[in-house]
């Protein structure tokens, strides 16, 4: 049995500037699989449709992961499955974005804050307007499948310890990150498959959640452990309220998204201080 939660809240800088929330999180659950996502649309001036970009990234993960069949694990190697999923996620996302660009031309209001050069560049490459990161995970067939691109966090949970998914990259410092809208997004999108029997669950978040903690140890002790404890003890409301508060009051001003999925009834020993 899986217990799960997703929550997104608007950051106070977006509230202050009357901007829409650019994060998006979602979940899908049926009798055989649980999928959770947390995606972060970029905040830079030219990313005028990044709120839609993050939603489409979330949809792309759910569609690609949702279409995976159990038999795939017998027919293909892990590497082949990962490569197919990377391609499917990117194709799904690009198809949604291109349809959106075709159906809904950029309005004057959308480009009103851009200078001439930015408008020119956006017209040359409209996909850029939808720039977003992507974090997604599926618990299925006693496995955890994870997809990650860009900053934020994707972690496996085991006995109260966080295990980051994806390689560390010194290039992605400050607010700069890899993006679904980059031409070489395929190179940066990582998909991994892990055995669920050794793992308690998976935690995904956008950088608005993780950055205020400044280092991984602090994030694990002060955020991940108490949140997992609350999830296991049914305190979903408290987690949601805290995420809301982090967005509008105590965080760094950025939008915040959390997605968490865990086995029900895991030992809580490692999650206590």
């Amino acid at each position: 049995m899986i217990t799960y939660l997703t929550r997104t809240a608007t950051g106070y800088s977006h509230l202050r500037e009357k901007k829409v929330c650019q994060d998006y999180s979602a979940c899908y659950h049926d009798e055989e699989r649980t999928i959770v996502t947390a995606c972060d649309g970029h905040g830079g001036a030219t990313y005028v449709r990044s709120d839609r970009g993050s939603k489409y990234a979330s949809d792309a993960v759910i569609r690609a992961f949702g279409a995976l069949e159990r038999s795939a694990f017998y027919r293909y190697t892990k590497k082949e499955i990962c490569n197919k999923l990377r391609l499917q996620i990117l194709c799904e996302w690009n198809a949604r974005v291109e349809r959106d660009i075709y159906e809904k031309r950029f309005t004057k209001a959308e480009i009103s804050r851009l200078d001439e050069e930015q408008v020119f560049r956006l017209k040359q490459n409209p996909v850029k307007a939808y720039g977003t990161t992507l974090q997604g995970a599926m618990i299925f067939a006693n496995k955890v499948l994870c997809a990650t691109l860009g900053d934020g966090g994707a972690f496996l949970l085991r006995k109260g310890v966080l295990y980051p998914i994806g390689g560390e990259d010194d290039e992605t410092v400050a607010n700069l990150t890899y993006s679904m809208s980059q031409e070489d997004a395929y190179e940066h999108l990582q998909v991994g498959i892990f055995d669920f029997s050794d793992i308690d669950g998976v935690l995904l978040c956008t950088d608005g959640v993780i950055n205020p903690y400044q280092c991984l140890g602090n994030f694990q002790e002060r955020f991940a452990k108490p949140v997992c404890l609350k999830l296991q003890t049914g305190q979903h409301r408290e987690i949601a309220d805290f995420i809301d508060e982090m967005g509008c009051k105590i965080g760094i001003g950025d939008d915040v998204s959390l997605a968490l999925a865990m086995k029900s009834g895991v030992s809580l020993r490692g999650y206590r201080s």
């Binding site: 950051g11 800088s13 977006h14 500037e17 901007k19 650019q22 970029h42 905040g43 830079g44 001036a45 030219t46 990313y47 850029k128 720039g131 290039e171 992605t172 400050a174 607010n175 700069l176 990150t177 890899y178 993006s179 809208s181 980059q182 950088d207 608005g208 760094i252 001003g253 950025d254 939008d255």
Partner: peptide
């Protein structure tokens, strides 16, 4: 503009 205003893909700031 440290928080949400100017993040983006590598190259933008």
């Amino acid at each position: 503009s440290a928080s949400a205003g100017y993040g983006g893909a590598l190259g933008a700031s």
